Simulated assay, not measured.
Amino acid sequence: MSLRKAGLAAVVLAMALLGCTQEQQNKISRDIQNWTGTNGVLEVYSGDKVVRRFLKIDKMSTAMGTDDGRARNYRFGYGVLDENLNFVADPDERKVYFEISDYTNMVFFENPR
């Protein structure tokens, strides 16, 4: 794609986003992020201390009700359980399924390493 066409495409996309509500923009951003993936880290806290850390999370999803289709009070995903909390997915640490409630003290962020 030529530089001119890429610039035009960027302008068109920006104008389209300006016509969207904030929630629609957030959904588009989440959809793009889900498609591209992330190298996420989830830290779970007890008070001010990290008690669990999950690495290499590509996305977390909101659980939806089977019958009513409404969002549930928890999120779930897959990540490597960092048992020794050293920010490295060691060979003996495995990818696991996890669930966290809306009331969990946690931080989710992109891995800076």
Results as ranks from 00 to 15, higher is better:
Leu18Arg: 13
Leu18Lys: 15
Leu18Gln: 15
Leu18Ala: 10
Gly19Pro: 03
Gly19Phe: 05
Cys20Trp: 00
Cys20Asn: 08
Thr21Trp: 00
Thr21Glu: 06
Gln22Leu: 10
Gln22Phe: 04
Gln22Ser: 15
Gln22Ala: 15
Gln24Ser: 13
Gln24Cys: 09
Gln24Trp: 00
Gln25Asn: 14
Gln25Glu: 13
Asn26Phe: 06
Asn26Asp: 13
Asn26Gly: 01
Asn26Arg: 15
Lys27Ser: 06
Ile28Cys: 04
Ile28Phe: 03
Ser29Glu: 11
Ser29Ala: 10
Arg30Tyr: 11
Asp31His: 09
Asp31Ile: 06
Asp31Met: 10
Ile32Phe: 03
Ile32Trp: 01
Ile32Gly: 00
Ile32Leu: 05
Gln33Arg: 15
Gln33Thr: 12
Asn34Ile: 08
Asn34Cys: 02
Asn34Asp: 15
Asn34Pro: 01
Asn34Glu: 13
Asn34Trp: 08
Trp35Ile: 01
Thr36Asp: 10
Thr36Cys: 06
Thr36His: 14
Gly37Ile: 00
Gly37Asn: 03
Gly37Ser: 05
Gly37Met: 01
Thr38Phe: 02
Thr38Val: 05
Asn39Arg: 09
Asn39Trp: 09
Gly40Arg: 09
Gly40Gln: 11
Gly40Tyr: 14
Val41Trp: 07
Val41Gln: 03
Glu43Ala: 06
Val44Thr: 02
Val44Arg: 02
Tyr45Met: 12
Tyr45Cys: 07
Ser46Cys: 01
Ser46Ile: 02
Ser46Gly: 02
Ser46Ala: 02
Gly47Ile: 07
Gly47Cys: 01
Lys49Ala: 07
Val50Lys: 08
Val50Ala: 04
Val51Met: 10
Val51Lys: 10
Arg52Lys: 15
Arg53Phe: 07
Arg53Leu: 09
Leu55Arg: 12
Leu55Phe: 08
Leu55Ser: 11
Leu55Val: 11
Lys56Asp: 14
Lys56Phe: 07
Ile57Trp: 03
Asp58Glu: 15
Asp58Phe: 13
Lys59Trp: 01
Lys59Ser: 13
Lys59Asn: 12
Met60His: 02
Met60Asp: 01
Ser61Thr: 15
Ser61Met: 05
Ser61His: 12
Thr62Tyr: 00
Ala63His: 14
Ala63Leu: 09
Met64Cys: 12
Gly65Tyr: 14
Gly65Trp: 15
Thr66Pro: 02
Thr66Gly: 00
Asp67Asn: 12
Gly69Pro: 04
Gly69Met: 11
Gly69Ser: 10
Gly69Val: 03
Arg70Ala: 11
Arg70Ile: 07
Arg70Pro: 04
Arg70Val: 10
Arg72Leu: 04
Arg72Gly: 01
Asn73Cys: 00
Tyr74Ser: 05
Tyr74Cys: 02
Arg75Asn: 06
Phe76Ile: 07
Phe76Met: 09
Phe76Cys: 00
Phe76Gln: 04
Gly77Pro: 08
Gly77His: 06
Gly77Glu: 05
Gly77Ser: 05
Tyr78Glu: 04
Gly79Phe: 06
Val80Cys: 11
Leu81Met: 11
Leu81Gln: 05
Leu81Ala: 09
Leu81Pro: 05
Leu81Gly: 01
Leu81Val: 10
Asp82Asn: 10
Asp82Thr: 11
Asp82Val: 14
Asn84Gln: 03
Asn84Ser: 04
Leu85Ala: 08
Leu85Val: 09
Leu85Phe: 05
Leu85Lys: 14
Asn86Tyr: 07
Asn86His: 07
Asn86Phe: 08
Phe87Trp: 13
Phe87Val: 09
Phe87Leu: 05
Phe87Gln: 07
